[in-house]
């Protein structure tokens, strides 16, 4: 109505999420540009950055759909791990990348739909369902590995190796996933219902959202992303080990929080959180290594920087008392 008369303070308040979203990114870029004297932006390092972020980026885009509607999923790392195994097995059998990727996506989507079913029809908390799936996936990887003397060799590694060495593939896939993610999340019914459900499922339902249906598609999207990401995960690691993909789910969470996402979901959710968060997080890890921080305490340093960035950018404004009625 009177947009031109908005006061600067309201403007800052309204765009707080944007500030968080790009604030931490700017902080990290400037910080490491200074510390590494620009080395972080060398052509070689930029390439390696892309390689490092591709898995996290694809999964995070899918996870935004989960977080937005109020589900915290912690199974993504384990499911991605299982998918790398599926890809290896199918690839060894058929020597076809499309087939093996499809098999991985089917595996991931099946597991995610299992979570969806348990949550939607048995009324279990979604995080418990994802905890169960995490153990199932992790357990399957360990079991199958034990039947193969603890190691599965990728017979056709040369076929997927280019995904690691040639960043063009990673860039194109990331770009496509990001664009599709943004389109779905911001410009379709699904994305809008998803955000409404995160805030108030009752109201969303009364406005025509079919809760189970919307959640179904969110789980499908998340599953697809995890399945696809596992291809890059495999290409980067080169073999399937017991711990492949573990910890990814936490990296995803840290990344989207750095991007300004509220893990409770709702209308303040944004795709930009995944994009800028993953870039920030990758820069953070990469920058610390280039800056010469010892690997033994890099995680500790990461933790401290994480809390500092969050403290600077994501302050809850509790100071403004709520108006009574």
């Amino acid at each position: 109505m009177k947009e031109e008369k908005m006061k600067p303070i309201t403007l800052i308040k309204n765009s707080r999420n944007n500030i968080v979203c790009y604030g931490s990114l700017t902080v990290v870029i400037v910080l490491f540009a200074i510390i590494t004297r620009g080395q972080i932006f060398s052509a070689y390092n930029l390439k390696s950055l892309v390689g490092q972020m591709v898995v996290l980026m694809i999964i995070s885009i899918g996870m935004i759909f989960m977080f937005a509607h109020g589900t915290v999923d912690i199974a993504s790392g384990a499911v991605a791990g299982l998918c790398t195994m599926v890809i290896t097995l199918v690839l060894n059998e058929t020597a076809s990348i499309p087939l093996s990727v499809i098999a991985a996506i089917v595996t991931a989507v099946t597991l995610y739909l299992f979570m969806w079913y348990v949550t939607a029809y048995l009324g279990l908390m979604s995080i418990i369902a994802s905890l169960a799936v995490m153990f199932i996936a992790r357990g399957l990887v360990t079991y199958i590995l034990s039947m193969n003397d603890g190691r599965i060799v990728i017979e056709h590694y040369d076929m997927i190796q280019p995904l690691k060495s040639n960043t063009v593939y990673a860039l194109i896939v990331m770009l496509v996933i990001v664009v599709v993610g943004i389109l779905l999340f911001n410009y379709t019914r699904l994305g809008k219902y998803c955000k409404a459900i995160g805030d108030n499922p009752v109201s969303a339902e009364q406005s025509g959202a079919r809760l189970k249906n919307v959640k179904f598609w969110c789980y499908v999207i998340a599953g697809c992303c995890v399945g696809l990401a596992s291809l890059f995960l495999l290409a980067r690691s080169g073999n399937v080990g017991k711990n492949i993909g573990s910890g990814t789910e936490m990296d995803v969470m840290v990344a989207v929080i750095l991007g300004g996402m509220n893990l409770n979901g709702g209308s303040k959710s944004r795709m930009g959180a995944a994009v800028s968060g993953v870039v920030t997080y990758t820069l953070l890890s990469n920058g610390l290594t280039i800056a010469g921080v010892d690997q033994t305490y890099i995680t500790l340093v990461k933790g401290i920087i994480f809390i500092v960035i969050i403290g600077m950018t994501l302050r809850q404004n509790k100071s403004v008392a709520e108006m009574p009625r």
């Binding site: 809008k192 955000k195 108030n200 969303a204 009364q206 209308s267």
Partner: peptide, 27 residues
């Protein structure tokens, strides 16, 4: 509790009940 999505904007609330009529791409 039921009718409105309080944290969402006025625009988002108004549009919510009309989404099923706005087609595939919502500009």
């Amino acid at each position: 509790k039921d009718a409105l999505v309080l944290p969402a904007s006025i625009k988002e609330n108004l549009v919510l009940a009309n989404l099923s009529r706005m087609g595939g791409f919502i500009s």
